[in-house]
Amino acid sequence: MEKTINFTLRVWRQKDAHSKGYFEDHQMEGISGDTSFLEMLDILNERLVKEHKEPIVFDHDCREGICGMCSLYVNGHPHGPEGGCTTCQLFMRKFEDGSTITVEPWRSAGFPVIKDLMVDRSAYDKIMQAGGYVSVNTGAAQDANAILIPKKVADEAMDAASCIGCGACVAACKNGSAMLFVAAKVSQLALLPQGKVEAARRAKAMVAKMEELGFGNCTNTGACAAECPKCVSLSNIARLNREFIKAKLAD
């Protein structure tokens, strides 16, 4: 038979951004190993609603690891201790029977809590708006094969572009820095010829916006890349630094 487990779920509750939060314990019994972490929370919420209590609020959407909506800090790790996956792709078979599982929201000044485990990540949108694009109007493009891009470069750009904007890098960083997120976008576009034209402007604008929004300074601890569910590489940060310094020196 498949594995079922019992455990204590210690989960952060917070009414709204201004209220004081606290931990609440729930006993979970007979949870199947094939249940995803979020489905486990669904089960708990179903129970809470039946008891006429307010369910635990958490962000989630696609539940296949790509939308970047889920954002739980489980047992000391963003997206849980498993690594290389989002919370929605974390399965209960990875947890020990009888253990206590602690669930917290992302904690960072840049991501204020909205309710319970849900945080406000609109700062990421604002950083993107500052320069995370190639300035090309609809209809202004030339034939797609007119630009030849070496496979290696395209693949590297793709690896950088696989960032899902979940915020785990900020959640993992002791400095609350969003450098990996910014670096992933700057790298992707700086690698490709289409994006090179405005690479300098982009790097400066995105970094400035990141700082304005209260994210910290990168000290290269590497926690961001280690916890990134899409394994975005730390070397992107070096590329961002390079682009930024180049841009500033050129000024």
Partner: peptide, 22 residues
């Protein structure tokens, strides 16, 4: 066809052949 052109211009990293074509 315009869609592919547009997306490439935006920096969508489509898979490529060794020769650099899509």
């Amino acid at each position: 066809n315009n869609i592919i052109d547009q997306c490439v211009a935006q920096g969508v990293p489509f898979a490529r052949e060794y020769g650099g074509t899509l």
